[in-house]
């Protein structure tokens, strides 16, 4: 009746020496870390505040903005803060 949206043309070869535990959705302040509509979360991992722990940065489509989440340790993160540049919320032009 209805075909599935995904059409994968290339044969998939699973990497033999790779293993992961089941994925865990990251949370911040008790809520899933999510991005604004229309979605497209792009994570990065860097020590932004120089405290020796890398923090989470999440780029998004809307406005070309980037959210930062301070690493509190143990996969716990503080509430979202928008990355700032030049005194205002940073935006990457032309993302959409």
């Amino acid at each position: 009746m209805v075909s599935v949206w995904v059409a994968w043309a290339a044969p998939m070869v699973l990497a033999a020496d790779v293993g992961f535990e089941k994925p865990l959705r990251l949370m911040a302040a008790g809520k899933p870390i999510g991005v604004e509509s229309p979605g497209y979360a792009c994570p990065a991992w860097h020590d932004l505040d120089g405290d020796g722990k890398k923090d989470l940065i999440v780029g998004q489509f809307a406005g070309g903005k980037m959210a930062t989440y301070k690493n509190l340790g143990g996969l716990k993160f503080s509430e979202r803060q928008w990355l700032m540049a030049g005194g205002t919320v940073a935006e990457v032009p032309g993302v959409w």
Binding site: V18, L26, Y40
Partner: peptide, 13 residues
Amino acid sequence: MTGFVWFYKGKAK
């Protein structure tokens, strides 16, 4: 419409 961030803990095999 949104998007989330998932953590895959690596383990040696």
